[in-house]
């Protein structure tokens, strides 16, 4: 039997969740035995070359590109996991929700204290650039998400336990400490 295939991506996240994946430390060697990676920043495969079993999503959707990537993941992965606060609820980026988009863009490119040299008052509008959405969306509002792993970032042991349970079919056994945050 061929190994299950995993894809991962970071949408509107800080890459902290991917760092947490790497935090499984030496177990990464076991992981490589268990699964194969396809599209992912971990192996730098940039487009899907195979249909995958598990897609792991970090970050919510703040721009049009995030939406496309997430939909691609849904198309190519049997199971999708929202990994971390940003993917599940929008997280830190969603702090802008409720603030007018115009105000956000102006603060970022015209008025903010760190703007400094934008003397021509240029707002980014290259046609290669994706557009900012009216708010940051959690992933499950865009596509169906099968599982949620909470945390900011989720603990490496939680990610490990969940992925292993999924690929082995064993019962998921999460000690309370792994999802207790206070």
């Amino acid at each position: 039997m061929s190994k299950p295939i995993i894809a991962t991506t970071s949408l509107a996240g800080c890459f902290g969740c991917h760092m947490a994946i790497l935090d499984i430390d030496a177990r990464i060697l076991q992981l490589i035995d268990l699964v194969e990676f396809n599209k992912s920043p971990i192996d730098d495969i940039k487009t899907f070359t195979k249909e995958c079993d598990i897609g792991i999503i970090e970050g919510g959707c703040c721009n049009s590109e995030n939406i496309h990537v997430l939909k691609e993941f849904r198309k190519h992965c049997k199971i999708l996991i929202s990994l971390g606060e940003c993917a599940i609820m929008g997280g830190l980026p969603a702090l802008r929700n409720g603030i007018d988009v115009k105000e956000c863009i102006e603060e970022a490119y015209l008025k903010g204290p760190t703007v400094g040299r934008n003397t021509e008052r240029i707002l980014p509008n290259d046609e290669e650039l994706p557009m900012i959405l009216d708010k940051v969306y959690p992933c499950h509002e865009i596509v169906k998400i099968d599982y949620y792993l909470p945390g900011c970032p989720p603990k490496a042991d939680l990610i490990w336990a969940a992925v292993v349970a999924l690929v082995t079919g064993d019962e998921l056994n999460i000690p309370y400490e792994l999802v207790k945050f206070d």
């Binding site: 049009s64 007018d100 988009v101 115009k102 863009i105 102006e106 707002l123 980014p124 509008n125 557009m131 900012i132 959405l133 009216d134 708010k135 969306y137």
Partner: peptide
Amino acid sequence: KSVKASCEVV
């Protein structure tokens, strides 16, 4: 609908 506002700004 969701990109309308940012498109308008730029």
